[in-house]
Every structure is written in C-alpha cells, then in structure tokens.
Design a protein around this nucleic acid. Structure first.
Length: 148
DNA sequence: GCCAACGTTGGC
DNA sequence: GCCAACGTTGGC
C-alpha cells in the first residue's frame, strides 16, 4: 500500500488511536478491486512514495475488510464522488493497523537491484501507478529478508 | 466505439 | 521541474 509520507507516513500510523487508520481515497478501479480482496489479518507492506527515498517502511495489518469509503459521500472531501451513493457505493476502504517497522528501510532502489528474484512483482513493473497492489507470497518472503 | 486532449502519478 | 506511462473524459 502506497502513501506519500509527507501526507501520512508509517510513523503517523503508529501514532493513531489504536494505531489504526481507515485507508480511504483510493479512486482507481484496479486498486479498489485489490482493496476488496483483502481479508482481515492480511499483511501489507507500507510503501512511501513521491519522497526523497521511496521504499518500504514497515508492515501493516488489515484489521477491517472493505467497507464503503465515507469520503466519497462527503462533498467537502477532496475524494468526493457524486456517483458513489450510499445505496450503491463505488469506492471502498479498509482499516490498516501498524504492524512493525522493517529493521532496515527497504529503498525502491534495493528492490530494483533484486529484479530477478522479484520478477513479476507489480511494484517494479514499468509505468506502475497503482496505490494498492498485490504481493506474491514468494516475493513477500524475499522482500522481508531484505529488511532484516 | 474511437481517439485526442487532458490530468495524475511517481521516479528521477 | 521533467517526463513517461496511464487513466479518464468527452466529442464525434
């Protein structure tokens, strides 16, 4: 799961009540579909994007499965979408809870340097812009080791 | 349904 | 700030 640390960082997540934050504002259908596939207890890499050193800062846990994204119903929200109605929601959110930091931050550059082992990992695909994307088990395990 | 124009993302 | 890569929009 990607976030711009200037807006909301992994440290910010740790400071939230119950170390939990609703993951709202996803407005891409493919990313939304990945969100909806998440199950309670699933783990996610918390990725910092659009910053000085992009990369993985830690591990988070999905603590609530997909529910209608309330920001889509709020005309004052940047993420308001008049086409998403309460009786037919278009956008969804999940609750994300702080899991643990990785011992060493894993820069995107490091991930790229393991491109062979991480072949097929969506984050490394050219032109990738999804804010929520899947991680294969084998990739997950390999990346975790990079952060030890 | 096509496609040009435009907007956004995100690494560099 | 630049720009490639996409997604979305809207005219036709």
């Amino acid at each position: 799961m990607k976030t711009e640390p200037d807006e909301f960082s992994f440290d910010d997540l740790a400071k939230r009540p119950k170390r939990t934050e609703p993951w709202t504002g996803v407005r891409n259908y493919q990313a939304r579909n990945f969100l909806r596939e998440m199950r309670k207890g699933d783990l996610a890499f918390f990725y910092h994007s659009s910053c000085e050193v992009p990369g993985i800062a830690g591990v988070a846990e999905i603590t609530r499965e997909a529910f209608p994204d309330p920001t889509a119903f709020d005309p004052r929200s940047d993420y308001y979408d008049a086409d998403s109605r309460r009786d037919a929601p278009r956008w969804f959110a999940v609750d994300v809870t702080f899991g643990r930091p990785v011992k060493q931050f894993i820069p995107l550059e490091a991930l790229r340097s393991h491109a062979t082992k991480l072949s097929g990992f969506a984050l490394l695909r050219r032109g990738n812009r999804l804010s929520v994307l899947p991680v294969d088990k084998k990739h997950w395990d390999y990346i975790l080791k990079l952060g030890r």
